[in-house]
C-alpha cells in the first residue's frame, strides 16, 4: 500500500448517522502534483478532505496520507500537512501576527520569530500585523490562512475552496502561489467550484452525491464525455430557450450572455431540435463543450441525490 502516492485512499466511506456523505471514494494522488477536487454543494468534498487529514474517522475504507495510516497515524499526518478549512478558522480575536505566532509555536518551529516575520513580509501584511484577524476582508483572510498553513513547510496542502469570494486578481495571485509551491515539490489538493481553476490543475476528481463520478485531465474528461454542444446566436434565441429545452435529445440549455448553448449526446437529435426553430433567425454552430457543460450534464446523468432519506 505504501507507494509513491501522497494520498492513497480506497473505499473511503463516511456516514453521519444513517446519512451517507461519502460513498466508496478512491483517490490515488502522486506526489508533487496539483489536483482539483470538484463537485456540487454537499457532494462530500469537505468530508473527504477531513478524512484524509485525520479530522474525521472514516466509517469504512482505509488509506494512507504521506505514507501514514489515516486512521492510526493522524498526528504524523498533521505535522506534515497544511489544511485550509472552507470557513475561515483562525482566531478573529487575535491579531494577524499573533495568529501566525501561535501556529509557529504549535509546530515548534525553531526559528519562529524569523519565520513569522518572513511570512508577514511575503503576505505584504507587515504594516497591518497588529490588526485583529477578524477585521480583515474576506480575500485577505484567505491569504492569511494560506500563509499560516504553509508556514511549517508541509509536504501536502489540502485547500478547501480557498478562493471562494476572492476577487479575480487575488485569485490569480493565489494560484500563482500554489504553482510556485508545487514547483518546490509540494502536493496540493484544492477543492473549488471555479472551472478556470479546475483547468489550472494537473488532474481533477469530480464527486457527486458522495461518489467519485470521474477523474482525469480536463481535456480528457471533456473528450471522453462524448458531449456535443451547439451555440446559437441571434435576436430571438432567448425566447426559444424554454421550448428547445423540452425537445428530445436536449439534455441541457444554458445562456452565455446573448448566446444559448444546448448540449446532448445525440448529434442528430440536437440538429432536429434546432431545425424546429429554423424560422427564427438565430445562427447555430457546433462548439467544443466547456468543462462546465460536461459537469452539468454529468450531474443530470447522476440523477437525484439518493443518499439521504429525508
Amino acid at each position: 500500500m505504501n507507494t509513491g502516492f501522497a494520498i492513497d485512499v480506497r473505499d473511503l466511506t463516511k456516514k453521519f448517522g444513517d446519512k451517507l456523505a461519502v460513498d466508496n471514494v478512491d483517490i490515488q494522488m502522486p506526489k508533487g502534483q496539483v489536483w482539483g477536487f470538484l463537485g456540487p454543494n454537499g457532494s462530500g468534498k469537505t468530508t473527504t478532505i477531513r478524512m484524509i487529514c485525520g479530522l474525521l474517522s472514516p466509517s469504512s475504507g482505509e488509506g494512507t496520507c504521506l505514507g501514514y495510516d489515516i486512521a492510526s497515524e493522524a498526528r504524523s499526518i498533521k505535522l506534515q500537512t497544511g489544511y485550509m478549512t472552507q470557513k475561515f478558522s483562525f482566531w478573529s480575536d487575535l491579531t494577524i501576527r499573533e495568529n501566525l505566532d501561535f501556529v509557529a509555536r504549535l509546530y515548534q518551529m525553531p526559528d519562529r520569530l524569523q519565520v513569522v516575520e518572513e511570512t508577514l513580509e511575503t503576505l505584504g501584511l507587515t504594516h497591518r500585523q497588529n490588526q485583529l484577524a477578524g477585521a480583515l476582508s474576506g480575500g485577505w483572510k484567505q491569504r492569511l490562512a494560506l500563509a499560516a498553513v504553509t508556514m511549517h513547510k508541509p509536504r501536502l496542502l489540502l485547500l478547501d475552496e480557498p478562493t471562494a469570494g476572492v476577487d479575480p486578481q487575488a485569485r490569480r495571485d493565489f494560484w500563482d502561489e500554489i504553482h510556485r509551491l508545487s514547483l518546490q515539490g509540494l502536493t496540493v489538493l484544492v477543492s473549488t467550484h471555479y472551472m478556470d481553476e479546475a483547468e489550472r490543475c494537473d488532474k481533477i476528481v469530480y464527486l457527486a452525491h458522495g461518489q467519485k463520478i470521474t477523474e482525469g485531465r480536463v481535456q480528457n474528461i471533456i473528450r471522453q464525455s462524448g458531449l456535443i454542444t451547439f451555440r446559437g446566436e441571434g435576436e430571438g434565441v432567448r425566447q426559444i430557450a424554454e421550448a428547445i429545452k423540452q425537445s428530445p435529445g436536449v439534455e441541457y440549455v444554458a445562456y452565455f450572455g446573448a448566446a444559448l448553448h444546448i448540449s446532448g449526446h445525440d448529434r442528430a437529435a440536437l440538429e432536429r431540435a434546432i431545425g424546429q426553430f429554423s424560422e427564427n433567425n438565430a445562427k447555430w454552430q457546433a462548439v467544443p463543450p466547456s468543462l462546465e457543460d460536461v459537469f452539468i450534464s454529468m450531474m443530470g446523468a447522476a440523477g437525484q441525490d439518493k443518499r439521504f432519506a429525508s
Binding site: S89, V103, L106, Y107
Partner: peptide, 14 residues
C-alpha cells in the same frame, strides 16, 4: 462555536 476547533484539531496538539 466559531469553527476554530477544526483548525486547532488540524494542527499537532494532544
Amino acid at each position: 462555536e466559531r469553527g476554530t476547533l477544526e483548525n486547532l484539531l488540524a494542527m499537532p496538539s494532544l
